[in-house]
Design a protein around this nucleic acid. Structure first.
Length: 881
DNA sequence: TTAGGGTTAG
């Protein structure tokens, strides 16, 4: 160590202990406290503070800041600069800013280097702190520091990220006339901006500009453009770019290949992507080797294409070759499992990750939470949230929005508003996704004026109304029969973008006319799909066809969903030849018919009893390799049953099992109904038992069979099934217990009827008190006044209990249901039964007694409004400021 | 230390 120069000594010690910042810091303090200590060099301060910042030793950084302020004025500014730069580079934005602030306050004539400003600008932009960006930019000008190319590049990149392409372009154009010339990064950033916004054609024009200014495009720029074209499906353009780059001596690398593979997977051409992937693995072909990302793309492709087994095999091979170790691999696999309904496995994988010490991140949890919510398993989702909280990760806006969506789709309004409040009180603010979820929920509930208030709030808070919001409103209008309004808005969107919603009556929306064309939200495939489906449902087929022509004229390519919509509509109206014309047209246009397409056709033919044609269609499916599914078979079963060929229909069950297709509850139900209709109860019962074996002991199967027996006078058999239902704890809502009690009484079997009632009471069921009446009547007629009174009392108890638990129909029923549905279903049935009771005049007086209870309880608006009265679904925005 | 390919919600 050279100790002849004390300043070198300081530097040396600091350098040697750079890896132990705490020790370096102590040594530094010690040396600096010596009276003969020389001033440290800026580079040593940079190394020290970089180490302190990296180790997040924040109090030490503050202390250092303080010490540096006391250095002689010849050394202090440069050392402070070094400190601030190191803090800034480590991303400790607030420290770096306060250090810059002291520098500027104490040494106003010292101009900080542009590099410091650039670094601070970069972090401020990343943190979305436009206030800081502005302040820094002003301070730069005050310090007479000129922005350089790097500064402009940062600003452009940020503008592009927030979709402000035109402003980014303006900045870019100003660069060419200013002292700072655009470099390859400037071009790269702008090109990326155009490509990300879907304007690859505008991006590629910049290649010519580059040529003019003598700036050579590099591999990154070519890859940006190629992936942009691939994303837009412009494969021809992508290919010619590859040729152009080869001519310039640049060769496609793994990124280029990944862009192609990604595009193929996104358009469902997984097998083609897989072929390329295999070629990349083949040493002889000299292609770039697949990397981590290539594997992820193929894995995701398999998962999205429903090829779970292939995906699983790939995961195994990735594990073997060490390509399955990063969190991202796990997250892709998690999302694949969820998308393919393997929720249990996904949940287990998540816990496995925790056990293995591979910390799942917010993405991992959100993926599983979303899957559970989509399957209606909100409790499961809530439990994953606790798991996540226990592992130190807090919910974000995505988590809350996902949960909100779960509650909304199940009509659980109270849960939804609870989530909204929880999210805001935890500092997560609703974004446009959240708003769209709410918007859809409100429209679905028919609460249009509230939806309009929400649109207004979204607008005030600056959440742009995007194409999703527009599509939600258009869907809502179609569902509510306001098709003309919907069409008017779509037309207006071509001119004014989302501002066309203003025609809904919201004058304020006129103010948000999308100013720049690049951001305007124009009708898309979903818009037309929604509109066309609305028109078809309303029987306005000619207008639907016109809209179809309009969309293709606007270069929106129809997908199989739209074709299916037309096929469905034609089938519904019995226009089978038109339906087949659509099928041929879609094939001609290169849109592959799906199993669903054929199922619709079979359904249409089935309702016209055209069995030969059905046969032709199923043959065609087999020839074209389009798999039949359970719905296909159910359609076949339905049409045969309708044609009173139940036996032939039943034989299809065998064919299904031969083809590896499991019949479902619908398959069996159709057959049970058909055999019951023809009074072939032995066959019906055989199917019923087969169904129980295949589908499990399902309540719907029991209730169906019980209803069939009961309707056809098979009272004993029906009663037996009802008894089983009691034992199994099923909800009896769908069982014909009232009818059965009534019929038993009519057949003078009051004892059987009474025993049924007693079983229901003993099992704790809460049921329609009207079921008591036939028995009370019968007992009264028989002169058994004592028993009749006893039952009357029990009926009164049931009525009281009914008052207390407004919605419960049985002890097994799950709590929350869609409030509106409950109202229409339950109230009307109870009310009508009670009205019938009250109209009776048998002098028993019971009816009047009961009436009083009815007036106190049921039918009196005891149904809670979908949103709890005391909570305004919109007030959460007020606290967001 | 600013530009390319992979993971979450409507």
């Amino acid at each position: 160590m050279n100790s002849s120069n004390p300043r070198r000594l300081v530097d040396e010690i600091l350098r040697r202990n750079a890896r132990n910042p705490a020790l370096a810091w102590r040594l530094f303090k010690h040396l600096l406290s010596s009276p003969s200590a020389p001033a440290p060099s800026p580079s040593s301060i940079f190394s020290l503070s970089r180490a302190l910042a990296h180790a997040r030793l924040l109090p030490e950084l503050d202390h250092l800041h303080h010490l540096l302020l006391n250095l002689p004025p010849s050394a202090a500014p440069r050392c402070l600069t070094a400190l601030s730069l190191a803090s800034s580079m480590a991303g400790i934005l607030d420290h770096a800013l306060s250090q810059l602030h002291s520098l500027r306050a104490h040494f106003p004539s010292h101009a900080p280097p542009i590099r410091l400003y650039n670094s601070l600008l970069g972090w401020s932009l990343k943190a979305n702190r436009s206030d800081l960006v502005e302040a820094l930019y002003k301070d730069m000008l005050l310090a007479r520091v000129s922005p350089d190319t790097y500064t402009f590049n940062l600003l452009m990149s940020s503008l592009c990220d927030s979709g402000r392409l035109d402003e980014a372009r303006l900045l870019f154009d100003r660069m060419t006339v200013k002292s700072c010339q655009p470099n390859e990064f400037s071009f790269g950033i702008l090109i990326r901006g155009y490509c990300k916004a879907g304007f690859s054609l505008r991006a590629v024009e910049l290649l010519d500009v580059m040529e003019r200014v003598g700036c050579l495009p590099n591999l990154v720029i070519y890859n940006t453009l190629i992936s942009g074209f691939c994303r837009e499906g412009r494969i021809g353009e992508a290919k010619s770019l590859v040729e152009r780059m080869r001519k310039e001596g640049l060769f496609p690398n793994v990124v280029t290949f990944n862009a192609r593979i990604s595009a193929l997977c996104k358009t469902g051409k997984v097998l083609e992507a897989y072929r390329i992937f295999r070629d990349m693995q083949n040493d002889e072909l000299g292609l770039p080797r697949p990397n981590q990302i290539t594997f992820n793309l193929i894995l995701d492709g398999f998962c999205n294409g429903g090829m779970v087994d292939e995906a699983r095999a790939l995961v195994e091979s990735m594990k073997e070759s060490g390509f399955f170790a990063q969190l991202e691999n796990y997250n892709i696999w998690l999302s694949g499992l969820v998308k393919n309904g393997r929720l249990l496995e996904a949940r287990m994988l998540l816990e496995d990750m925790v056990r293995k010490g591979l910390k799942p991140n917010l993405y991992s949890y959100n993926i599983v939470i979303d899957g559970l919510c989509k399957e209606g398993m909100i409790f499961g989702a809530e439990s994953v949230i606790s798991l996540m909280r226990n592992n130190g990760i807090s919910s974000d806006t995505v988590t809350y929005s996902t949960l909100l969506h779960g509650y909304c789709t199940q009509g659980k309004a109270y849960g939804a508003s609870k989530i909204l409040h929880e999210m805001v009180s935890n500092g997560c603010f609703p974004n446009s996704f959240t708003c769209n979820i709410l918007l859809q929920s409100l429209w679905k509930e028919g609460r249009i004026s509230e939806a309009e208030i929400l649109l207004q709030k979204m607008n005030e808070k600056g959440y742009g109304l995007d194409i999703v919001s527009c599509n939600i409103v258009i869907d809502g209008l179609c569902e509510n029969g306001k098709l003309d309004k919907a069409m008017e808005i779509v037309e207006g969107m071509w001119q004014h973008g989302s501002a066309a919603l203003g025609e809904l009556g919201n004058a304020f929306l006129v103010l948000v006319d999308d100013v720049n064309d690049s951001k305007k939200c124009l009708p898309d495939l979903i818009t037309y799909s929604t509109l066309i489906s609305g028109l078809c449902n309303a029987g306005r087929l000619d207008e639907a066809k016109k809209k179809f022509v309009e969309m293709t004229g606007k270069n929106i390519a129809p997908d199989s969903v739209i074709y299916d919509t037309f096929i469905h509509a034609f089938c519904k109206h019995g226009k089978m030849s038109s339906a087949f014309k659509v099928l041929r047209d879609m094939e001609k246009k290169g849109c592959k018919p799906s199993t669903r397409t054929y199922n619709l056709l079979i359904w249409g033919l089935g309702s016209k009893q055209q069995f030969n044609e059905i046969q032709n269609v199923t043959n065609e499916m087999q020839e074209k390799g389009i798999p039949l599914d359970v719905i296909t078979y159910n359609n076949l079963i339905r049409s045969l049953c309708d044609g009173e060929m139940a036996r032939k229909a039943a034989s299809l069950l065998e064919e299904m099992s031969k083809n590896g297709i499991m019949p479902n509850i619908t398959s069996f139900s159709l057959l049970i109904k058909a055999f019951s209709k023809s009074s072939d109860f032995d066959a019906a019962q055989a199917i019923f038992h087969g169904a129980l074996t295949t589908c499990g002991q399902k309540e719907v199967l029991y209730s169906l069979m019980c209803n069939e027996f009961s309707m056809n006078g098979k009272l004993l058999e029906a009663k037996e099934l009802l008894q089983i239902a009691f034992e199994r704890g099923f909800s009896i809502e769908r069982f014909p217990y009232k009818h059965l009690v009534d019929e038993l009484c009519k057949e003078q079997r009051v004892d059987d009827a009474q025993s049924l009632l007693n079983s229901m009471i003993n099992k704790g069921y809460l049921f329609d008190p009207a079921a008591f009446m036939p028995v009370i009547d019968a007992l009264g007629k028989k002169g058994n006044k004592h028993e009749a009174d006893k039952l009357s009392e029990q009926m009164m108890d049931m009525a009281t209990y009914h008052d207390k638990s407004k919605f419960l129909t049985s002890h097994t029923q799950h709590s929350e249901m869609k409030p509106r549905r409950i109202k229409s279903k339950q109230d009307t049935s109870l009310e009508s039964d009670w009205r019938n009771l009250l109209l009776r005049d048998d002098g028993s007086g019971i009816a009047m007694k009961v009436l009083k209870r009815v007036q106190k309880g049921w039918g009196q608006g005891s149904i809670p409004s979908p949103w709890p009265q005391n909570i305004d679904p919109f007030d959460v925005w007020e606290s967001t400021g």
